[in-house]
Computed example of a mutant assay.
Amino acid sequence: MGASLVLATRSAGKLRELGPLLAQYGWHVMTLDELAITESAEEEALEQFDTFEANALAKARYFAQRTGRVVLADDSGLVVDALDGQPGVRSKRWSGSLLEGSALDSVNNAHLQAALDEAARRGRMERTARYACAAACVWSAGACVRLGTAEGTLLSAPRGDGGFGYDPYFLSADLGVTFAEAGRDAKAAVSHRARAVEALCAALAGEFDPAEKLSANLRVAVDHGPRSG
């Protein structure tokens, strides 16, 4: 595409994964830090909806207003069958912890194992799950969002030291190893984020005027969309 966009995430893990993916499709990626977009209290309230798609669009619209540029944002999480779809859109703060980074991952994974143990005691023995990701792009003329998923099984003990989030426990059905054991390229080929970005870029093909190239200074005018509650 040869166009510039802002990758609207403050997650180092997502930047490592989404940046190269978008570059493969010809995007010139800018980060919030590069644009000196300081973190605000409003950001924590953006992911208040019940679907990955609505949360991704809310984030993309918010940062499009703040930056005045084309923005891509995502919302992703773990959907566990024995837990009736939990943690889903609440995956990041499911444990209730306010920690960040690897410390938060440890607390969330302990909470996950406890929840699976409790489900097993109630007769829900299955450990099938999937990662889901919605990728949303907002630009001056509109918005687009697509969903990608990756199937797997949750292990009772972690394997691998790569990835982030629930990756050490997520045994990929495609790879036969956990996402934490897989190399970056292997994970990128089958991950929920890769599939969401692929679907999004396919949907956006031909959407933009090649002469305009979505210049870095393109102004966008979008509202935040409906709020719940």
Rank of each mutant, 00 (worst) to 15 (best):
E47T: 02
P87I: 06
G176W: 10
A134S: 03
G148K: 00
D50W: 15
Y62T: 05
V6T: 07
D33Y: 14
H28K: 11
S172N: 14
G148M: 00
V190Y: 15
V138L: 14
Q113I: 06
L104H: 10
G225S: 10
L175V: 10
G142S: 05
A3P: 00
A54C: 06
S228M: 09
A103D: 15
T9F: 10
T67P: 12
F52C: 01
R122P: 05
A211H: 09
Q86F: 03
A157W: 12
M30C: 11
G148Y: 03
G26Y: 11
L83Y: 03
E39W: 08
F63L: 07
A103L: 15
K59M: 03
A64Q: 04
V177D: 02
S228H: 11
E47Q: 10
L57V: 05
G152S: 11
A202L: 08
N217G: 13
T31C: 10
T9L: 09
E39Y: 11
P20M: 09
A103Q: 15
A60C: 07
A143G: 04
R16M: 05
L15Y: 12
L57H: 07
H224V: 01
Y62W: 15
S228Q: 14
N109R: 10
A115P: 05
Y169E: 02
R121S: 11
L218K: 09
A134W: 02
V190E: 10
R10W: 15
S140Y: 06
D209S: 12
E53W: 03
F52A: 02
L104R: 15
E198F: 09
L72D: 00
F63D: 00
A202E: 10
L21F: 08
A221Y: 06
S215L: 15
K14I: 05
M125H: 11
A82I: 05
A129V: 06
R195T: 00
A196I: 06
G123H: 11
V107H: 09
A202T: 01
S4T: 08
V197Q: 02
G13Y: 13
S172G: 14
V222P: 03
G229I: 05
S228T: 08
D209L: 12
E198P: 03
F208G: 04
A56K: 00
G148I: 00
G183F: 15
W139P: 01
D50H: 15
L154P: 01
R219D: 12
E100P: 03
E118Y: 14
A216F: 12
Y131D: 00
E126S: 15
T178N: 08
S97Q: 14
Y25S: 09
S11L: 14
S40V: 01
Q65N: 12
V89S: 14
S172T: 10
A115V: 02
V177P: 02
L98K: 14
L15W: 09
G183E: 13
K14V: 06
L18T: 00
V29W: 10
F49N: 13
V79S: 04
Q86S: 08
L35V: 06
A23G: 14
A194W: 04
R66I: 07
R90T: 03
L21E: 00
C137A: 12
Q113K: 08
L112S: 07
L7N: 07
L147Y: 04
Y131N: 00
D161E: 15
G88N: 07
H111L: 09
S76M: 08
R195S: 05
A205F: 02
E198R: 14
L46I: 07
R146W: 00
G176A: 08
R90I: 03
V190K: 07
T178I: 04
